[in-house]
Structures are given as structure tokens and as C-alpha cells.
Design a binder for these strands. Structure first.
Ligand SMILES: [Zn+2]
Ligand SMILES: [Zn+2]
Ligand SMILES: [Zn+2]
Ligand SMILES: [Zn+2]
Lengths: 132, 132
DNA sequence: AACATTATGTAATAATATAACATTTATAAG
DNA sequence: CTTATAAATGTTATATTATTACATAATGTT
């Protein structure tokens, strides 16, 4: 069983707007959209984002500095993430493929390094954009 | 055979400093270090970085906003990159593992997306930090 | 209640990256 | 060699992303 976290007021507000969005959201775009709800400063947004990332409710798309809700109920701790990103329309989706995640979770090379987390971003053209 | 690029003056200066560094360098730290060579503005650094990334001489570590020289002479186009990052000492190294790169290059899921590039970052503790 | 932990509010500032425009240098054709 | 084109440079200003520092309030635990 996954631990349930009770989101705080700001965390709820910010999670909701990300969860409803059809695309990854950037911190300052979130800020702009929640100002009517009383969240006025960047730090309020970043603090909520940090927490939401930490507990796995959202993920950061590093190459885009943007945040997306976890589409994969199983990854409650964001330690194993994979995304596909369309370089044309910027559509992003979380990849949920157990073979891939097993392969990466078990990956070990000669470096002797012990991995406990990974982030993978694939880039290409989505179906729609490919057929244009 | 790989195409040889003749680096321009600024590109050489900036590649050299990254190549000599034992750790990934950030753009403004590069800027600071090349000011004595006449490179005065951020844009001059970012332009060189963009080009060097494009031709695969360096890679960007997205989670760190830092740049590292390619340690893998075969990836002259930076379309397939994998790194291991120590979360304690921040040591970063490029993973060169043909099984991994083949696996990822051939990865395809049900989304019908055609991938032409990926970036993978593993996080953990390096040998040194693990034994502390 | 007392204490510790987590979250909030606010202002200022740091760090990262790009836009816009003028000029120069390198490369390729004719 | 000259003209055309593309690539690189220089410079100023500005946009975008993220953190520091400090004060206060809410929440959870003993
Ligand atoms: Zn997820
Ligand atoms: Zn697309
Ligand atoms: Zn490389
Ligand atoms: Zn280490």
C-alpha cells in the first residue's frame, strides 16, 4: 500500500492545476494562474512543487523545466521516471512500460555505482506530427 | 567516419575549458573563466554551448544545468546519452554501454511514437561515497 | 500544554537563458 | 577574384527560472 499524503492548501491548489492541464506547466505559468487564489510569490509555488515531486504526485520534465502530474499511479515516489516528448507539438506523456522500468531498475555497469533513481526522456515525433 | 568540425575561436575556448574540467561546468562559471580571453557576454557562451551540444562534443546534464565533454568518442551527434550522477559528491560520468544504448535505441511502445533521441540520467552513490 | 515538524507569507536577489540588432568572418559558387 | 550565402561574433537589454533570508502560523506528537 502506498502512503497517503494529506496535501496542504497550497499543495492542493497547485496539484489541481497541474493535474487538470493537458500539457506540462512551468512554474511561473502556474504562479500566474493561481494568483487569484492568493498565491502571490514564486517561492510559494516552488515549495509546493518540491513537495509534490518528492511524494511522486508530479514529475519535473527536466529538459523543459516543466511539471506534469504522475500518470502512473504506481510510481508514488518519483525515483523511476520515463517520458516521451514530441519535439514538434511538445506533447509529453509518461511511459509506463514494465519491461523498460525493470531493465533500468536493474541496470548496473562496471562503475560499481549503486543507482536508486533514474530519469529518462525520449524525443521524437508523435503519431500526429509524424503524419504531417 | 565522423564528420570533423572546425571549431570557431569561441567554440574552441569554451570546449577546451569544459574538456579540461573534471566536473560538469555551468554556463556562468564558464563565462567567468573565459572573460580574460575576451568573451564577455552570456550569449557568447550560450551560442558556443549550443553548437557544441549540436555536434556532440559536449552534452548538457539537464538535471544540473551543466555541461560535460563527451567521454564517448562514438556519440558525435548527441542523440543518445546516458549519465550516472552521484547525489553526494555530484560526480558525473557518461555511461558507455552498448547493451543499454541498443536497448534504448530500439525501444518502442504502443504509443506509435518514433523516437530519434533520448537522454537518461541515473542517480545514486558512487563507489567512494557509498563506502563512507 | 509543550515541543517538534511542516507549511506559509513576503521581500529581495541569484542563477539561467534568450531577444534584437549591427557587424564580421568563413565557405561556396560562379 | 568576386559575389552570394551561411555561420559566427559583439553588445545591450531583458526574460525566465529558482533560491536566500527571515518572520509567522498551522499541524502533529508526546
Ligand atoms: Zn509517474
Ligand atoms: Zn507532436
Ligand atoms: Zn557522449
Ligand atoms: Zn560520490
Amino acid at each position: 500500500m502506498q502512503k497517503q499524503y494529506n496535501l496542504s492548501k497550497n499543495q492542493k491548489i497547485i496539484f489541481d492545476i497541474i493535474d487538470k492541464s493537458s500539457e506540462p506547466l512551468k512554474a511561473y505559468s502556474i504562479l500566474f494562474n493561481v494568483q487569484k487564489k492568493g498565491i502571490k510569490a514564486p517561492l510559494q509555488v516552488y515549495r509546493a512543487l518540491d513537495k509534490l515531486v518528492e511524494i511522486g504526485k508530479i514529475h519535473k520534465i527536466e529538459s523543459r523545466n516543466a511539471f506534469i502530474a504522475c500518470q502512473n499511479s504506481s510510481c508514488q515516489i518519483s525515483k523511476a521516471t520515463a517520458f516521451s516528448i514530441c519535439e514538434s507539438c511538445e506533447n509529453v506523456s509518461e511511459i509506463s512500460n514494465s519491461k523498460l522500468s525493470k531493465y533500468l531498475a536493474n541496470f548496473a555497469d562496471e562503475s560499481g555505482m549503486k543507482y536508486n533513481k533514474y530519469n529518462l526522456e525520449f524525443f521524437g515525433l508523435c503519431k500526429k506530427c509524424k503524419s504531417k
